[in-house]
Amino acid sequence: MSISSERLPSADTLAGQAAKTASGWMSDAVIEIDKLFGKGYSKQHPELVAAFMQTAGLDEAAMHLRGLALAHQRVDDTLEVLSERITQILERG
């Protein structure tokens, strides 16, 4: 078992990434809304752009929660293996 040396990005780095992500979502929203409803529709209906961005944000949050759940499962699995090994050692000795 190895311990990862990967660290979380700094708050400044995350803030910069968040701005770029939001900008990308906004561009995607305009493109997709205009593709669906016609050129300029997104400009006339900023509430659709906002809803698109909110949905994208919720989807990203769900993906992060999934990652946390997977990490939790790996920790749980590792603890179970360790518990079994300790039990085996204690039963032998």
Score class of each variant (00 low, 15 high):
51 A>F: 07
52 F>Y: 15
53 M>F: 03
53 M>C: 11
54 Q>C: 05
54 Q>K: 12
54 Q>Y: 06
54 Q>S: 12
54 Q>D: 11
55 T>V: 09
55 T>Y: 13
55 T>Q: 14
55 T>C: 08
55 T>E: 15
56 A>V: 09
56 A>N: 14
56 A>R: 15
56 A>L: 13
56 A>M: 15
57 G>K: 13
58 L>F: 10
58 L>M: 14
58 L>H: 10
58 L>G: 10
59 D>K: 11
59 D>G: 03
59 D>H: 10
59 D>S: 08
60 E>R: 14
60 E>K: 15
60 E>D: 08
60 E>M: 11
61 A>S: 13
61 A>L: 15
61 A>M: 14
62 A>P: 01
62 A>W: 02
62 A>E: 05
62 A>Q: 13
63 M>G: 12
63 M>T: 13
63 M>V: 10
64 H>E: 13
65 L>C: 02
65 L>D: 09
65 L>M: 13
65 L>Y: 04
66 R>C: 00
66 R>K: 15
67 G>M: 09
67 G>V: 02
67 G>I: 01
68 L>Y: 11
68 L>H: 11
68 L>T: 07
68 L>C: 06
68 L>A: 13
68 L>R: 12
69 A>F: 07
69 A>E: 09
69 A>W: 05
69 A>P: 00
70 L>Q: 12
70 L>R: 13
71 A>D: 13
71 A>V: 01
72 H>T: 13
72 H>G: 14
73 Q>C: 00
73 Q>R: 09
74 R>D: 01
74 R>G: 01
74 R>H: 06
74 R>L: 08
74 R>W: 04
75 V>Y: 04
75 V>G: 00
76 D>K: 01
76 D>L: 10
76 D>F: 05
76 D>E: 14
76 D>G: 02
76 D>I: 05
77 D>E: 15
77 D>F: 05
77 D>V: 01
77 D>W: 02
77 D>P: 03
77 D>M: 05
78 T>N: 06
79 L>N: 08
79 L>P: 04
79 L>Q: 12
79 L>T: 01
79 L>G: 00
79 L>H: 03
79 L>S: 07
80 E>V: 02
80 E>M: 05
81 V>L: 01
81 V>P: 00
81 V>K: 03
81 V>M: 01
82 L>G: 04
82 L>W: 09
82 L>D: 04
83 S>C: 02
84 E>S: 03
84 E>D: 08
85 R>G: 00
85 R>T: 00
85 R>H: 01
86 I>M: 10
86 I>L: 15
86 I>C: 06
86 I>Q: 08
87 T>I: 02
87 T>A: 14
87 T>R: 12
87 T>N: 08
88 Q>S: 08
88 Q>W: 01
88 Q>D: 07
88 Q>A: 12
88 Q>L: 08
88 Q>E: 11
89 I>Q: 11
89 I>A: 15
89 I>P: 02
